[in-house]
C-alpha cells in the first residue's frame, strides 16, 4: 500500500484503489477493484457473503498485501495512527479494563497518555466501566471499545467491517449514533460494511457494490434515492393467474411468496383490481415502494433481497 502525506486539509480522496487484485492460493478473491473514498464520507461496501468485502478491508488497513494494483492513502498527518479499524473482530485484550486497553493503544502509537483517554472513554460511553475486564462486557460494549481503540490517534480514516454484527437493537442503535457522531462532529472518513442494508443506508453517503470480487457499481446515497424506481407488491388469492394479467398491462411480474407478486412500476389501482377480477383473481392488498438500498443491490446483482 502506498502512503502519501498531504499538507493541509483538502476535499480530495482519502484512499484510492486502482486495479486491486487478491488471490488466496488459486482462488481469486478480488479482481480489478478500483474506486476512491472521498474525504469525510461514510463509504458503504455492499456485497454478498464471500464477495470480497472483508478482504478489501484487510488490504486497505495493511493487514494483507495486494497481488495486483495499488492502494494509495492520503492523510494530512503522520501515517502512524492515521487509520483505525475493526476488521471482523474488535482487537482488544479481554483480560484488561477498557482504560488499560486504551493505554496500550496509546503506547502502541507512541503517544503519551493524557486527558484525551478519558474523553475517548466518555465519547464511546465506557467512562463508568472502571476495572471491569473487557471480557465481561456486552457485545455492544466490546464493539464500542474496539471503536475507541481504533479512534486513539485521531484517525482520518476509520475502517469498520460489520460493526453491528451480532448486536441487539440497543447495541445497533448505540454504534450507529456513535458513527454518526464521528462523521458529523469529527469529520472522520468511514469505510463500513454491513449485512444489514437498512442500517447501512442510515449512515452511508457513498456505496461500492461488490459481486464476486469485482466492484459492479459505485454510487452516492443521493443517486440511489433519485433512481426514481417504484415497486409494487400485490397480495392476491392466485398468483399464477395474476401473472398474465400484469403482463398484459405491460409489467414484468415475479412471484415472491405464495400469495404475493412483485413488479417494477405502479399500476392504476382500479384498473388492476377490475382486470384481476375479470380473470378470476381477488386482490386483497396493493403496496407501492420507492427504490431502497436493498432493491438497488438486488437490481444490480440479481437474486433475492437476502444479502
Amino acid at each position: 500500500m502506498e502512503f502519501e502525506q498531504k499538507s493541509g486539509a483538502s476535499a480530495e480522496d482519502v484512499i484510492v484503489l486502482s486495479g486491486v487484485g487478491k488471490k488466496y492460493g488459486k482462488s481469486t478473491v478480488l479482481k480489478d477493484v478500483s474506486f476512491s473514498v472521498p474525504k469525510g464520507s461514510v463509504y458503504g461496501l455492499v456485497g454478498r457473503n464471500g464477495a470480497g468485502k472483508t478482504t478489501l478491508m484487510r488490504l486497505m488497513t495493511g493487514l494483507q498485501n495486494c497481488d495486483e494494483g495499488k492502494i494509495t492513502m492520503s492523510v494530512t498527518g503522520d501515517r502512524i495512527g492515521s487509520v483505525g479499524a475493526i476488521v471482523e473482530l474488535a482487537s482488544i485484550y479481554t483480560n484488561m479494563s477498557a482504560r488499560d486497553n486504551l493505554v496500550f493503544q496509546y503506547m502502541n502509537l507512541g503517544r503519551k497518555v493524557d486527558e484525551s483517554l478519558d474523553e475517548l472513554l466518555a465519547f464511546v460511553g465506557l467512562a463508568d466501566t472502571g476495572k471491569k475486564h473487557a471480557g465481561k462486557f456486552s457485545l455492544g460494549m466490546r464493539q464500542r471499545l474496539g471503536i475507541a481503540v481504533a479512534l486513539v490517534g485521531d484517525p482520518e480514516l476509520l475502517v469498520l467491517d460489520e460493526p453491528v454484527n451480532g448486536l441487539d437493537p440497543q447495541g445497533i442503535l448505540e454504534v450507529r449514533n456513535l458513527l454518526l457522531k464521528l462523521s458529523r462532529e469529527k469529520g472522520i472518513t468511514i469505510v463500513i460494511s454491513s449485512h444489514i442494508l437498512s442500517e447501512l443506508s442510515k449512515l452511508a453517503t457513498h456505496y461500492a457494490f461488490i459481486e464476486e470480487g469485482r466492484v459492479v457499481k459505485t454510487a452516492t446515497a443521493h443517486e440511489i434515492e433519485n433512481a426514481g424506481k417504484k415497486f409494487s407488491r400485490v397480495t392476491c388469492d392466485d398468483t399464477e393467474k395474476i401473472l398474465p394479467v400484469l403482463e398484459g398491462m405491460g409489467f414484468e411480474p415475479r412471484i415472491i411468496a405464495q400469495d404475493k407478486v412483485e413488479f417494477e412500476g405502479e399500476a392504476k389501482l382500479t384498473t388492476l383490481v377490475t382486470t384481476a377480477l375479470d380473470a378470476g383473481v381477488e386482490i386483497s392488498k396493493v403496496e407501492t415502494e420507492e427504490t431502497d438500498l436493498e432493491r438497488f443491490f438486488v437490481g444490480l446483482v440479481g437474486g433475492d433481497t437476502n444479502v
Binding site: 488497513t61 495493511g62 493487514l63 503522520d78 502512524i80 495512527g81 482487537s91 481504533a150 475502517v159
Partner: peptide, 8 residues
C-alpha cells in the same frame, strides 16, 4: 493487527 493497522 492493531500494530499493522496503526501503520507500523
Amino acid at each position: 493487527r492493531n500494530k499493522l493497522i496503526a501503520g507500523h
